[in-house]
Amino acid sequence: MAYPTAPLEVLGLWTGWLLMLMIYSYPLYKENIVFRWAEHTYIAVMLAVNLVMMVTNVNRIAIQPMLQGQIHYIIPIILGLAMYTLLVADYRWISRYPIAVLVGAGFGLGMRGVLIPNLLDQVVSTITPPAGGAAMDWFNFIYIAIGTICAVSYFLLTYEHTGALRYPTRLGRWFIMIGLGAYFGNTVLFRLSMLSGRAQFFLQVLKIIPM
């Protein structure tokens, strides 16, 4: 992508650059007026984007089909509007019906969905020995099998972790810590990756590096 030349694009680029500095004035300096202004600007424009998307999408998936003869779409439209009774204390109970539809569909799909990929597949994968005979494959298989059993036992919250459960649960906590350590390492990658992108943008707008 080349550095823009159209005046509105250049203005946009510098606007974005200034807004970025305003936001970073908070961590790099302290909370101040320009940071709060930029923060409120973001909330405003994000809400506007959400609202515009809501209007266009509801029109596309509900209103237009209804106008074209699928009259029953009036039901979800009314139920959707009923959600807004949440804002009126006396009629708040009406909003429970659309919530019931969302919760019923959500739980029904979620519960039936987790059975195979999250439970069955994971158990099968844990206890399936490696096809090859390499020593490292067997080590990894035993590590994962023992680790998973011990870590799951750590979540046996209805029993006190004493007696026979004492050592497996303690070992399980170590396996969980290793997992969380790797997760933390990946979190560092994610956050610093995003920040690197901003540092790059900072230099690009100043034309110190090419865009």
């Binding site: 809501m54 509801v58 509900a62 139920l79 539809v101």
Partner: peptide, 10 residues
């Protein structure tokens, strides 16, 4: 219906 309700609730 759930999809439409979720959209309107945005």
């Amino acid at each position: 219906y759930a999809t439409i309700i979720a959209n309107i609730a945005l």
